[in-house]
């Protein structure tokens, strides 16, 4: 029986591509119990983690069933004392030798996964800095020229099929960078630089979160990870590098004026305008972002106006002051301007 279990587990342990009926089974269970992004991997690291989880889960389920069947057999079907020889074999074999072998196989199988989870990137480098409670995102220049860094916030775009190096830092407290669909999490520590790499295998938009409690709005510190085909990514990065579009309509021009006269530029940058501060998120292409307030709200007119009027009421502890004194017209004009920052 022991040999049969090991024989049944071995193809699982060695095979990178499980037979298709197993794939269907795991997909079905994932959908049925809504297991979430970790079990619906879209990146190289996450695929390894999900495979490991499935092997452990199915292996544990098989072992549990076998032990229960043995209990039923010994207590109900055939309740008689075992011979000393069989009892010793059961205790030493089942309690000692078998677990040592299984744990040894698992250890030998999983240890090489650890360096595989930390392999360096082969192209682009993105520096992400955890702030309370948002993410500063910088796409570094390939030649290391800091002046060519593309600054963004609260959204990370990645090319599919490439291994992007992620350099992580933190401002005041510890955060943790986690996109469950793509890879495991990595802590961001003030005064230190940590790193990881992301190699997406599917395009799409995936949720990223802060996975280390970092203060009152920790639960509202999220972001979108958008995976694009490489040509689309290159086009997007080229557009992101450009300064902000000039306001086109009267309302947008009025909004740009409100932005500057209300002092928004004391914290925010809109490249191509006098607003150049780096205290809050860069807003140069804010209108093209999917979400507002670090992955917490839809980036729509009502939410944007509400955010400007009383940000801390939507996100406790947020350092952005409330602009409740703005007239409805000014608020609407500012909203048009922000929406136009594509």
């Amino acid at each position: 029986m022991r040999a049969a279990v090991v024989a049944a587990l071995l193809p699982w342990l060695s095979a990178c591509s499980a037979p298709s009926y197993l794939g269907e089974f795991t997909e079905g269970v994932t959908a049925l119990f809504d297991l979430g992004d970790v079990m619906r991997p879209a990146g190289r690291e996450a695929e390894q983690i999900a495979q490991l989880a499935w092997v452990l889960f199915i292996g544990a389920a098989i072992l549990w069933l076998l032990v229960m069947a043995l209990f039923v057999y010994i207590t109900k079907q055939n309740p008689r004392p075992l011979s000393r020889r069989w009892a010793e074999a059961l205790i030493i074999g089942g309690g000692g030798i078998f677990p040592v072998i299984v744990l040894g196989i698992l250890l030998v199988w999983t240890l090489p996964l650890m360096p595989a989870q930390r392999m360096p990137g082969d192209g682009l480098t993105i520096r992400v800095t955890g702030k309370q409670w948002w993410w500063k995102v910088e796409y570094l220049d390939a030649n290391g020229d800091e002046a060519n860094t593309v600054v963004s916030a609260n959204e990370i775009r990645l090319p599919k099929g490439r291994r992007t190096e992620i350099v992580l830092a933190a401002d005041r407290v510890i955060h943790s960078f986690w996109i469950p669909a793509l890879a495991g999490k990595t802590d961001m520590i003030p005064g230190q630089t940590t790193r990881m790499a992301l190699e997406p295998t599917k395009t799409g938009t995936f949720r990223g979160v802060c996975a280390e409690f970092c203060g009152e709005s920790h639960a509202l510190m999220a972001f979108d990870a958008v995976v694009l085909e490489e040509p689309a990514f290159k086009a997007w990065l080229a557009a992101e590098r450009e300064p902000a579009d000039a306001p086109r309509t009267a309302a947008e021009r009025r909004g740009a004026e409100v932005f500057l006269t209300q002092g928004c530029g004391a914290c925010h940058a809109v490249r191509g305008t006098p607003a150049q501060a780096q205290i809050g998120p860069d807003l140069t292409h804010f209108g093209s972002r999917l979400t507002l307030g670090a992955g917490s709200f839809d980036n729509r007119s009502a939410e944007r106006q509400s955010w400007v009027a009383h940000a801390a009421a939507m996100k406790p502890g947020a350092r952005m002051p409330a602009y409740a004194s703005l007239s409805d017209e000014d608020l609407a004009a500012l909203d048009r301007y922000l929406e136009g920052l594509k």
Binding site: L107, V108, L111, P115
Partner: peptide
């Protein structure tokens, strides 16, 4: 033996 395994595989 388990202590030494990471040295072989990492």
């Amino acid at each position: 033996l388990y202590t030494a395994l990471p040295a072989v595989f990492i």
